[in-house]
Design a protein around this nucleic acid. Structure first.
Lengths: 260, 260
DNA sequence: CTATTGCAGTTCCCTAGACGAGTAGGCATG
DNA sequence: CATGCCTACTCGTCTAGGGAACTGCAATAG
């Protein structure tokens, strides 16, 4: 064990497992354990601190719950590396202007070592649920086109996105195709005569459901950001609702808005 | 035990603790266990499923990590009730216009049963750290005024906020006082001749540090939203950085921004 | 040289207890 | 009747292990 860890302090009122967790946390914070580094194994901790296995495990459990480390079965526990995808709200739609968007995007990509991608795309049509209907200004049960997809960064899933578009807007356009063409569905909506006016995003954070944890391959203790975006055309009609769930460790959202 | 829970299924490939967790999760989802209700105690689970106590505990641990339940020492484990505070970005600064702001605010408050408040206010002056200096366009070590405060909702802490203002802007104004007067520091900055131009907010989510968990009285498994807002005047000079940490379960942030 | 097998190391999952400490409620004593 | 004690029940923490599952690597068989 290269990092030096103090012994459990009897005088310390904190329980041993917290002291051990704090020592490891401190080692990470000070950079003695960098991203990707391997923590001491359970038995090393047992030997070093003279505690039971479950006690060492509980310390590691705490760090996992904080999202600071990731356990890999049969390999060890590793400090999480934090690749952050930083996205400015306005930039996220810059791709409508194809060339400019591509340039801005790849520049951003280079900066953070981000290689984008989509897998698991599905396009279906179904009746609107009450949540979607309310946001789109439809009646419950009205037909909507649903585009469900998963985004990857560096080969790892980081976001799921489900778009809902009123079926009468989407039918007969590339919106119902797998490949929506240059500029994506927003460009197709504008082609169809719906000039986009503004977006509303609702941002929340919470722990993932088991389903979400599976879909995003999240380990214990990683929260998700839920971003529900509603797009309105210039007449104020809601033309799309996009419900995204992002792995929190992979995103910093940026919003720029005027005073007053 | 009023809710019916199936026995552990040997054929199920999932480990018992996950099966138990799933059964409880399902009972909550179906409404058999509502907010505030008490879960079966550890020993009840032990008797019912025929597992060891640590196994039952781990199932509950999972639910705690998801933020679905809260354990109270000596009383039991309870389904969490989730009060949500919804804040529109533009509304959050409406208080600059005192009357209009108050009205909008209390209307909002009535809707969600939200009673605001601040405790633990401190105002100090210190050299800028590199993070703050970069955002404010200062040199590291330049003096900044630091306003550190904690916000309450319904008597419970839900947010900590630390504002950093370049000391040369703040000195001699009410910004260095406990009570900044009507309209808060933004109004004082405008009084001093810095007309606000726009804000940039960086939103991220993560699990809290132990310090943050203490400050916000968060139980296990509740993530936080970190919102760092930088305020710029009309000349593009950064006049304030506000670093907030919000209890995730208490907030949905809303942003409205134009297309293009 | 390749492919398989075996093994050591590691984590995961679980058992079967123990003591401590906080809570709630019944009960005896004053 | 009021107070305080006592007990039952709760979760928190800890001990001391064992077996299963997975990984990486080396040795072995083809």
């Amino acid at each position: 064990m290269t990092i030096d860890l103090a012994a459990v302090d009897k005088a310390d009122e904190r329980p041993p497992y917290r002291q051990i967790a704090a020592a490891l946390r401190e080692a990470i914070r000070r950079g003695k354990l960098g991203p990707g580094d391997k923590l001491p194994s359970e038995s090393e901790l047992v030997d070093h601190y003279g505690v039971a296995r479950m006690t060492a495990r509980q310390a590691i459990q705490d760090l996992k719950a904080e999202g600071l480390v990731v356990a890999e079965h049969g390999r060890g526990v590793f400090v999480r590396s934090v690749p952050v995808v930083r996205r400015l709200a306005s930039e996220r739609f810059a791709r409508r202007h194809r060339d400019r968007g591509k340039a801005a995007f790849s520049m951003e990509a280079e900066k953070v070592g981000y290689t984008p991608g989509v897998d698991r795309l599905s396009v279906t049509e179904a009746p609107a649920t009450s949540e979607v209907a309310e946001r789109l200004g439809l009646a419950v049960g009205d037909a909507v086109v649903i585009r469900d997809r998963r985004y990857l960064a560096n080969g790892e899933p980081v976001e799921t996105a489900v778009s809902y578009i009123p079926a009468d807007l989407a039918r007969g356009t590339a919106i119902v195709e797998s490949d929506t063409g240059p500029g994506g569905i927003y460009a197709r909506l504008e082609d169809a005569g719906y000039t986009l006016g503004h977006f509303v995003e609702e941002v929340a954070a919470r722990m993932p459901t088991p389903d979400e944890r599976r879909a995003l391959q999240l380990s214990t203790g990683v929260p998700v950001m839920s971003v529900v975006r509603t797009a309105y055309d210039t007449t104020g009609r809601a033309v799309e609702v996009c419900d995204t769930v992002k792995a929190a460790h992979a995103y910093v959202l940026e919003y720029d808005f005027p005073a007053r």
